[in-house]
């Protein structure tokens, strides 16, 4: 297989497009795709301040790297979720990346500032905190961006993430979520910062290839809490289909965004006039106390119950 650009032996094949690139040309192709989506989907302009939500994984660090190389003013935000050694190692990856590239990294320490950690948010039925973890991350990414005056929050969601989410929402016919799924979530309130996903048309494999070629030191291990998560089952299923039909994931997601979404009632971007400030934290919500504050209360209560009584040595 030869590189589509320079005809040297190729390293990365893009099966859905029947093209391949060598390690020298691939990063240029990858960044051009990122730039294309930023422009085409009007995600942000060059004069806007971007906050990249980073986890230490390949997607978010590849995104931060690509945006910086494309000349955007992009800072990072990392949330210390408190998932044992995994969190410590991912924090280290983010800090090292920021230091190496001379970039600003903001951090939120859940345990220190909120009094709970993600494992405290396990659901009773599934034993998994993944859905609650998503809420925690979205809340703090938005809060930090709003407080520090960023114009947009960019996340590393890739084609596989988005196709798996779409599939899950179809399996359960979550019409409300389907209507809101897309690469740009516009701000509907001054306290809600615009959210964008510049990697949404690039597959997880393509993002990993970019990270490896650009020698980005990312956390390879999987979040221990995510083992057995539904999203992984959906991804495996979609990759089985992709094996037989290259381009199936892309067609599924992009077809939905171009045609399917328009058939759904409401896009979720109408001005949210009914939003008011949460009585506890001041963030926009439809309720008296926002979903995050109620969830944080549950997390703190569970942490309190799990704590050994004073004077008892936990060892």
């Amino acid at each position: 297989m030869r590189c589509h650009t320079c005809a040297r032996p190729a390293n990365v094949e893009i099966r859905r497009s029947r093209i391949a690139f060598c390690a020298g040309c691939y990063p240029h192709w990858f960044r051009a795709r990122v730039q294309e989506r930023i422009d085409h989907d009007r995600m942000f302009r060059r004069d806007e301040r971007v906050l990249v939500a980073v986890s230490g994984g390949k997607d978010s660090l590849a995104l931060w790297h690509a945006l910086t190389r494309l000349g955007y003013r992009a800072d990072g935000v990392y949330i210390r979720l408190g998932i044992g050694g995994y969190s410590r190692r991912s924090q280290e990856k983010c800090e090292r990346f920021a230091e190496w590239h001379g970039l600003m990294l903001h951090q939120v320490d859940l345990e220190g500032s909120e009094g709970f950690v993600v494992p405290d948010l396990r659901e009773a039925r599934s034993g998994k905190p993944c859905a609650a973890c998503g809420t925690v991350k979205r809340y703090h990414f938005n809060r930090v961006a709003a407080e520090l005056g960023y114009d947009v929050v960019a996340t590393g969601h890739n084609l596989d993430d988005e196709a798996a989410t779409l599939f899950g929402n179809l399996v359960h016919w979550n019409i409300d979520y389907l209507g809101r799924q897309g690469p740009v979530l516009e701000s509907t309130h001054p306290g809600l910062v615009r959210k964008v996903k510049p990697l949404y048309r690039l597959s997880e494999r393509e993002t990993a290839a970019y990270a490896l070629i650009e020698r980005i030191d990312y956390i390879l291990e999987e979040c221990p809490m995510a083992k057995g998560a539904k999203s992984l089952a959906y991804k495996a299923m979609l990759n089985s289909l992709e094996e037989q039909q290259p381009g199936a994931k892309y067609g599924f997601l992009v077809g939905f965004l171009k045609q399917g979404r328009a058939a759904l009632p409401g896009t979720g971007f109408e001005p949210a006039a009914e939003l008011r400030a949460c009585a506890r934290c001041g963030q926009p919500t439809t309720a008296e106390v926002c979903a995050y504050c109620r969830m944080a209360d549950r997390g703190r209560r569970r942490r309190e119950r799990a704590r050994p009584p004073a004077g008892v040595d936990p060892t």
């Binding site: 997607d59 993944c130 859905a131 609650a132 390879l220 998560a229």
Partner: peptide, 10 residues
């Protein structure tokens, strides 16, 4: 062989 799939609450 590098696995490239990650999951959970994103």
């Amino acid at each position: 062989i590098y696995p490239v799939i990650s999951g959970g609450g994103r």
